[in-house]
């Protein structure tokens, strides 16, 4: 119980981590209550993730009573798009990081604990993946499998697991040499037990911190893919998609360069705050997990 108190105090004491928590909590609420905040119109009930559109005109329309954030190219409602896009962002971020952490732990701990030929094989495979520029490889994978949100998830998983495998391997290598690992082997524990019960709990914290920092980064990469037209299908509620629609409208006509500011700024701000929130939270986790901080 004191540990929980300590964690809670650490989180709240630092104003920046508190800000991070507030931002993420707000986003969680938006995601959960999306149907209440931005109700799906009757005609759309079957496909709530598709942004309803109000006509087919190319030019974005400024905020009005019907569309409080305005509409973007093709008359897609920006408000509906950013609210439901929060769900897409969480889905991409959490699913990718979840899979990546599991793969990383599995391969990294095998490589680190057993060393030798196992280590050599696993690490050379990660080297192959790390040799490609991450975003380009992700683009190639999305292009090959056909654009959709799930393909984006697969692509980002493929490009991000190697760094996790590396990180865990390094930490396991360090922990492996500790006496208590040898002691538990001396007590007759099997390799699986030693890894799961003794090595991982001592080696996993850097990975958890990196994971929480990376959730934002993954969403940013997904937005970049969508911006390049390699993301969710057209009209799907996704922040990257909305910025992609606004590509031609970043600068307005001569004499009024800020005419369509809402088209790119609003989805951009959502991405910015989401990534910022996770980064601040990651820093807060770092403080909490740091065993050198006094727990009194």
């Amino acid at each position: 119980m004191t540990d929980w108190k300590f964690t809670a105090r650490q989180l709240v004491r630092n104003p920046l981590s508190l800000l991070g928590i507030i931002i993420i909590v707000i986003f969680v609420f938006i995601a959960i209550f999306a149907p209440l905040i931005a109700p799906t119109p009757e005609s759309h009930q079957q496909r709530p993730y598709m942004i309803p559109r109000d006509g087919y005109r190319a030019q974005p329309e400024p905020p009005s009573e019907d569309h409080i954030f305005g509409t973007t190219q093709g008359q897609y409602d920006i408000f509906y798009g950013v609210i439901w896009g929060t769900r897409s962002a969480f889905r991409v971020g959490l699913v990718v990081i979840g899979i990546v952490v599991v793969i990383g732990i599995l391969l990294g701990s095998l490589a680190g604990y057993f060393g030798g030929i196992v280590d050599e094989i696993i690490m050379r495979i990660t080297d192959v993946f790390l040799a490609f520029p991450a975003l380009i490889l992700a683009m190639a994978i999305v292009a090959a499998l056909g654009p959709s949100l799930n393909t984006v998830i697969i692509a980002l998983t493929v490009v991000s697991w190697p760094s996790y495998a590396r990180l865990i391997r390094g930490d396991i290598l360090q922990v492996r040499e500790e006496d208590y690992i040898e002691a538990s082997r001396g007590l007759g524990a099997s390799s699986a037990r030693v890894i799961l019960r003794h090595a991982l709990p001592n080696a996993i914290y850097p990975t958890l911190i990196m994971a929480s920092l990376d959730i934002g980064a993954v969403v940013l990469s997904a937005a970049a893919l969508s911006f390049l037209g390699l993301g969710a299908p057209e009209g799907y509620a996704d922040w990257g998609q909305l910025t992609s629609f606004a590509r031609n409208w970043i600068v307005g006509p001569p004499g009024d360069p800020l005419k369509y500011w809402y088209a790119v700024t609003i989805p951009g701000l959502f991405i910015l705050f989401f990534v910022l929130g996770w980064n601040l939270l990651g820093d807060a986790f770092r403080d909490i997990f740091d065993p050198r901080l006094a727990r009194r």
Partner: peptide, 22 residues
């Protein structure tokens, strides 16, 4: 493995290091 810790067991030099901190 069934013998280690059961029939033959070992005490290590550094008691602090032989215990898992977590």
């Amino acid at each position: 493995r069934a013998i280690r810790g059961n029939k033959i067991s070992m005490v290590f030099q550094e008691p602090g290091a032989a215990l898992n901190p977590v």
